[in-house]
Design a protein around this nucleic acid. Sequence first.
DNA 1: CGTAACATTGAAGTGGCTCAAGGGGAGTGG
DNA 2: CCACTCCCCTTGAGCCACTTCAATGTTACG
Lengths: 251, 251
Amino acid sequence: MAPAECLVENGNAEQRAPLGAELSCSSCALKYICLPARLPACEVRILEGAVKRGHALAAGASLIRAGQRMQALYVIQSGSTKGYRITTQGDESVHAFYLPGEAVGLEAFAEGRHVCEVVALEPVRYCMIPVRRLERLLETLPGLRREIVRLLSQAIEDAQSRHAGMGCAGARERLAGFLVDLSRRLERRALSPTQFRLSMSRRDIAHHLGLTLETVSRVLGAFKREGWIEVRLRHIKLLQPEALASLAGVT
Amino acid sequence: MAPAECLVENGNAEQRAPLGAELSCSSCALKYICLPARLPACEVRILEGAVKRGHALAAGASLIRAGQRMQALYVIQSGSTKGYRITTQGDESVHAFYLPGEAVGLEAFAEGRHVCEVVALEPVRYCMIPVRRLERLLETLPGLRREIVRLLSQAIEDAQSRHAGMGCAGARERLAGFLVDLSRRLERRALSPTQFRLSMSRRDIAHHLGLTLETVSRVLGAFKREGWIEVRLRHIKLLQPEALASLAGVT
DNA sequence: CGTAACATTGAAGTGGCTCAAGGGGAGTGG
DNA sequence: CCACTCCCCTTGAGCCACTTCAATGTTACG
């Protein structure tokens, strides 16, 4: 029999039966990272009733398609995704990689419609909160209100600092920044900040940083030769994170 | 006696007495563009009570400084500003130019503290809504709630599309995109979309697009030679907006 | 085992950067 | 009103980092 992920390989964000691992946000491994982390306990209990858990996506399947009406706010539970749009020249511009606990699709509130694509880079599980339901909850839950505003605002700030990084920095600086950022986000999730698997291809990284995949490959090779990292395909180990951080200009 | 603007030349966003031009949002020239545009009349009336109008800023003066606590949401009433941060290499990365009716400082909700600088590019008048007051209004006004979320979400989308533009496009494409974007935003404000004054320097444009000021100057020169625009210093006239739009990859 | 996607590496080309010099405008003070 | 100055803008020449093009190696997966 085919594994569960194959059922959704057609690229649609199909709804699946709950896997039974987490029955509530309170029992979820991400409770200190995810949306409920900054919410008062009473609001978490109410929010839980609106969350649809246990959806799954195979590697390469779409979570969000451009043009689609916004139906829900998605939160990655495991695995990772990339968000991108197709430029007029036909190549994709990757604006973000989403890790467990991160909200996806925040930019769709503006028009009620998604403008970018989001696809799974590996098998993904995710939760969703229907927008209608979310908007109704915002009426009564002040903590959730603050938290959503905080998330949105944070996304703006992140986008701005990425803009700053693309402005002047060279390929080495950009790649160092990318690795350090990824490392720190993994650390916050209690994963090793120095040794991890890159779920995205060199091409994805390149399109995220405004470079070509060859340059990404070369710079990674250079970092390796200099003893800053170990790389073998998707597996990476940061040997001198401080060197990378100082190159990226992060404290 | 010194003109009024000189009173605030020290760079602080000092509060000034209302100029008396607009006593309410309903009588403001920006009412169809600004925040109240999408608000029900009843909410506009309530919001008006919270808005502090008629503040002024001289060219070059700061509206927001990095590190400052977020005190209010600012909305430009006349003039224009630039928002930027100083990179670790010491040069500034300009993430946005703000026109009348646009909200400034949305990224500060995340930490309650501003992370970027905003300075006036020319004499500016602006309104402010104190955050405490705004948060209290969000409790009771569903329309305002939706509108703030919309603004935040829109800012994310804008930032993402700017990211896409910086990724692969060359200097000509970026500059064309910049001019077309500016033109359209001016048009929405009932100003000429084909003939306007650039309130920002070549250096500011360069830092916004991730180029050098020499390149900006050269590309503008090239557009002029090709008969696409007329430029003389800060004054610009778009002769073939369609050519620019198609180069920028905008419909 | 074969195929296709991914990754590495090399060599040549080029777009934008750097460095440098010169021309204006706008504002200031005499 | 003029002279002075500072900053902004323009233009040129050379260079470098990244891209482009191309070939080869590697891994995963049916």
